[in-house]
Amino acid sequence: MTWLEGALTSLALCWRIERRDGVTIGLTAHDRDLTIGGLVYRAAPGMTPSAILRGASLDADSMDVTGALSSTAIGEADLLAGRWDGARVHVFATDWTAPGETVTLGEGVIGSVETEGQMLTAELKGVAAALERPVVEETSPECRAELGDRRCRMAMAGRRRFATVTGIEGAVLTLDATEPLANCYGGGRLRWFGGANSGIEEGVARSDGATVTLRRPPRFDSPGRIELIEGCDKSLATCAARFGNAANFRGEPYLPGTDLLTRYPGG
C-alpha cells in the first residue's frame, strides 16, 4: 500500500456501524464525507478511538470510541432506547485522497454506551470477547431455553400476532385486540413496527385481556403497530400442560439443591 509509505500520509479513520435491524451508517474522522463501497461515510471529525491493542493471545480485545453526538447519525434518544445495542462495528483506515483501499484496525460489537452532555463513549468488544462466556450451563429448576429457539423446538407460527396500541399509561399498553389465553404474552416479547418506537423490542411482564404490561415503560409515548410474541414462565408444569413440550424441557426441577442438608421432615 503505497499511500502508507509516503512522506506525507493521508490517513482517515472510518467506522461502519450495522444495527441489528439492518440500518447501516458510516462515519469518518476526516473533515469531508467519503464514499467507500457505495456507502457514504459522513464527516465526524470529533470521533476518535482510544489506543487499539491487537495481539495473538486469547485476551479479549476492546476499544473505546469517543465523539460528539449527532442527531443525524447517532442521537442520544436512540442510544437510550437501545437501538444501537449489539450493533456490529468495523473500524478501518483509508486514503482520503482516493478512498477505496482499506486497512482493518478492529471489529466487534457495541457493548456499554455512556453519554455525558453531548459527548458519547461507546465500548467496542472484539470477537475474542465471546471466550469470556461460561463454557457450560449451570443447572436450574427453570428452563434455560427460550420459547421457540432451537433447543425448545416449539413451533411459533401461530404464536405471533399483530395488534395496534391505542393507549399508553406508564408501562401498561391498551390494545385493539384481546389475548387468546390468560397471561398469554407474559414473559414474551413485543416489537414495535410503527410510531417513534419503531424497531425497538420490549420485554412483556404480563398480559390481561386487552392490556399488556411491559417490564419498563416504552421509550417514547407514541402508539403504533406492534407484534406480540407469546411467552413462557419456564416451569415444567407450563411446558407440559400448555405447550405439550416436556420432552424438550431444559431444566432440572427435581435436582436437589445446596439446601438439601438443611431440610427437615414437614419443612
Rank of each mutant, 00 (worst) to 15 (best):
G86L: 04
E227Q: 14
A129T: 07
T238D: 14
L261M: 12
D31W: 09
T72M: 15
E201L: 13
A93I: 04
G195A: 06
G186Y: 09
T24E: 08
G266K: 07
L11E: 07
I36R: 04
V212D: 02
A43M: 15
P99T: 02
R216C: 06
N245E: 06
R206K: 12
T104M: 12
C14W: 02
Y41S: 08
K125M: 15
V40D: 03
G188T: 03
D31N: 13
G38Y: 02
P134S: 14
P253C: 11
H30F: 10
G244Y: 06
G67T: 05
E142I: 10
F243C: 02
A43C: 11
G224P: 05
G38W: 05
A128E: 07
A171G: 08
A145R: 03
V212I: 14
L190T: 01
A68C: 05
A68F: 13
D208R: 15
T66M: 14
G126Y: 01
T178I: 14
A163S: 09
I36Q: 01
T262G: 07
A157Q: 05
G111A: 05
R54H: 01
A205N: 06
G148H: 08
T24K: 15
V127G: 11
V165N: 03
L69D: 03
D149I: 08
R88N: 00
G6Q: 12
E107S: 09
T24F: 11
L27D: 00
L13V: 01
I25G: 01
L11D: 09
P218H: 03
D31Q: 15
T48L: 14
A129C: 13
L214I: 02
R216K: 11
